[in-house]
């Protein structure tokens, strides 16, 4: 095997030349979800289509976590990013985790990083948002 195979941290992260997030969108009411669905929580519809989420957005809320469950490295910045009307939960990365550097309303864009390679040579890829 020459090329390293990659696997996304979650299945709504699409890898490739232009990494992006995908959502399941309800075909009746447009509600968007990142998990697999049984039905729509908004209108109870059962038809969904896959839609791409904008890779740029604005920080609507954040916290800088300095105390977390065992095994979770700190500090990290957890945030809610408004990606052109779709709210996305993610870490803010490639930014110093301090209130002086992280601001509400700051413009950010999707970025990926490696979580490491497993025993089969598969590399896991995570995502976050970095200052745009």
């Amino acid at each position: 095997m020459s090329a390293t195979t990659q696997i996304p941290l979650v299945n709504y992260l699409v890898l490739g030349d232009t990494p992006h997030l995908q959502a399941n969108e309800c075909t009746s009411c447009g509600a968007r979800y990142f998990d697999r669905r049984n039905a729509c929580a908004g209108c109870f519809g059962t038809e969904f289509r896959t839609v791409d989420i904008a890779t740029e957005g604005e920080v609507r809320s954040f916290t800088i976590v300095t105390f977390a469950a065992p095994g979770v490295p700190v500090p990290f910045v957890a945030a809610i990013v408004d990606c052109n009307g779709t709210s996305v939960r993610a870490n803010l990365i490639n930014v110093e985790p301090s209130p002086e550097h992280v601001k509400l309303g700051m413009k950010v864009k999707l970025a990926t990083y490696s979580l490491g390679t497993d025993d089969n040579g598969v590399e896991a890829i995570g995502f976050g948002f970095e200052p745009a």
């Binding site: 996304p8 977390a68 095994g71 870490n91």
Partner: peptide, 10 residues
Amino acid sequence: VASTDGRIGT
């Protein structure tokens, strides 16, 4: 493929 706490928010 890994725990999301701390990787995708908190």
